[in-house]
């Protein structure tokens, strides 16, 4: 029997960038094992976490993600030997950059989830979803995407009106 789905005011959009060998397989296992986890997460599959460019994370936020998860094989288990070691360094650096420009790092989660860890996948996704839900929508990037460079800043009501008319 399914539990009645709890209703929420805000359903966050979570984008998960995962490697195909470990985390994708882990998420697949969670599915085939009929484990329940929030449907807020949308998976994007990559060959390896080493292929995940920080710009993908930016793009996800710009296109409306409220939270981003990056997940791959545990250290030592990479299908390509060292992809996740490189990713680990890159994301350690990228987090610092995002923090410095004012992004709340609570919206960004990194994890190692193996093909056998369906339970951990459920746990990671549930925790991130609930945390982001509590934080509310990610406004910053969406507002930026809407903002126009239209002869300087949109500071007057007339400009705003003209823009809205567009």
């Amino acid at each position: 029997m399914h539990h009645a789905k709890p209703k929420h005011e805000f359903e966050p959009k979570i984008i998960a960038f995962v490697c195909t060998w470990c985390t994708y397989a882990g998420a697949d296992l969670a599915g085939t094992s009929r484990m329940q986890y929030p449907a807020n997460v949308r998976l994007v599959k990559f060959p390896c976490t080493g292929r995940i460019d920080p710009v993908f994370i930016l793009k996800a936020f710009q296109q409306g993600a409220d939270g981003v998860l990056v997940s791959g094989c545990h250290p030592g288990d990479c299908h390509y030997m060292a992809g996740n070691f490189h990713a680990r360094r890159r994301f350690a650096a990228f987090r610092k950059l995002l923090e410095f420009i004012g992004v709340d790092l609570q919206r960004l989660q990194f994890s190692w989830v193996s093909a056998a860890e369906a339970g951990k996948w459920v746990e990671v996704v549930t925790e991130l979803t609930e945390r982001v839900r509590a934080m509310g929508p990610m406004r910053e990037f969406k507002d930026l995407a809407l903002e126009e460079q239209w002869s300087g800043s949109l500071t007057t009501p007339e400009l705003q009106e003209a823009y809205e008319a567009i």
Binding site: E148, Q149, W150, S151, G152, I166
Partner: peptide, 10 residues
């Protein structure tokens, strides 16, 4: 010039 020819416009 940007008063007539903005840096970027739709």
């Amino acid at each position: 010039k940007e008063a007539f020819f903005p840096v970027c416009e739709d």
